[in-house]
């Protein structure tokens, strides 16, 4: 199956099996209705359709394809540790639900059978201190004594950052779609609010941020097998992280009080964006990484570095 067919399949699966109710019940946290229920049904369908193996070494698909899938999952706010499932499947052999920890914090460690840490340890016996990010996505502390050292690629942190870039760019696109639909339907003063110039300009600004994010994310994926990958991911994490704040703000403003309710699905995307931009390095961390590279080549070669033409 080509990746386009797989993406089509995934879109159908996500449309049919990933709704607001499932996302709500998967949320973990201190509020009564945050039950932290792992979406077992969705997980079963994903395994049955093989979508948990996209990007795997024997799947006939690539790591770039995995990022495309993660982008789509971001667009649907899939309440699974989906990036961690695909990335661990690519780099670690073995069975069972495997998650990846940033330091000692891992999505859904409470449900996982194994944990891979981003510094190259494989853990299969561990305790969990449950926690969550501000989107209510389980982010559990993994407590362990014994681990096995495994080999991860040297740019593994960039690969994990790329998962957040891809997921964010998907969620950003969803926010633009939701907002365009909403301002076209919502009527005030006798006409759809999309007719007001102030609203149009906010949505246009949002579209600019979303398009920049998509392009930055795609450019990083395109650079995957080159020595430009890390710098492109860095730039994308910076640019998309910045866009996340702007776009979430405009989306909420456009949706008014309606979008501030728990009942509306808008927050499933905005809260995830607020959380994901901080995971695997917020903007400033990656800004500094690029900044130091630019300074290292010096003013007169800064353009070469930026334009990828150091000959």
């Amino acid at each position: 199956m080509t990746i386009d067919l797989i993406l089509d399949t995934a879109e159908r699966v996500f449309t049919d099996h990933c709704n607001k109710e499932i996302r709500d019940s998967a949320e973990s946290g201190s509020i009564d209705d945050q039950k932290g229920l792992f979406p077992e049904g969705l997980w079963t369908v994903i395994q049955d359709t093989g979508l948990h193996q996209v990007g795997g070494r024997e799947s006939g698909t690539t790591l770039a394809d995995a990022f495309r899938m993660i982008r789509l999952a971001g667009k649907f706010a899939v309440p699974l540790p989906y990036p961690e499932i695909l990335i661990s499947n690519r780099f670690v052999t073995g069975q069972g639900l495997t998650t990846v920890a940033e330091g000692v914090i891992a999505p859904w460690a409470r449900r996982a059978e194994r944990v891979v840490t981003d510094d190259g340890q494989l853990v299969d016996e561990f305790d969990v201190v449950e926690g969550a990010n501000l989107a209510g996505e389980p982010r559990d502390e993994v407590v362990f004594e014994n681990s096995k050292s495994i080999e991860l690629p040297p740019n593994f942190r960039a690969i994990m950052a790329m998962t957040r870039v891809a997921a964010m760019s998907g969620a950003l696109e969803k926010l633009l779609e939701l907002t365009i639909d909403y301002v076209g339907e919502r009527k005030q003063f006798g006409r759809p609010i999309s007719g007001f110039q102030a609203v149009q300009h906010n949505v246009a600004r949002m579209a600019g941020e979303v398009a920049a994010s998509t392009r930055a994310s795609d450019a990083a994926i395109e650079a995957l097998d080159t020595d430009r990958f890390v710098i492109q991911v860095s730039a994308a994490k910076v640019r998309v992280g910045e866009a996340a704040g702007v776009v979430a703000e405009i989306a909420h403003q456009a949706h008014g009080a309606m979008g501030f309710t728990h009942e509306h699905e808008l927050h499933h995307y905005t809260r995830r964006l607020w959380a994901w931009r901080d995971e695997y390095g917020h903007e400033k961390e990656w800004q500094q990484l690029i900044g130091r590279q630019v300074v290292a080549v010096g003013a007169d070669r800064a353009w070469e570095l930026i334009s990828d033409c150091a000959h």
Partner: peptide, 19 residues
Amino acid sequence: EESALIGRLASHIMTLRQM
């Protein structure tokens, strides 16, 4: 802080250029 600003500006230029 200087590195961060340079990196931030570079990220914008790289993205705009790709677009």
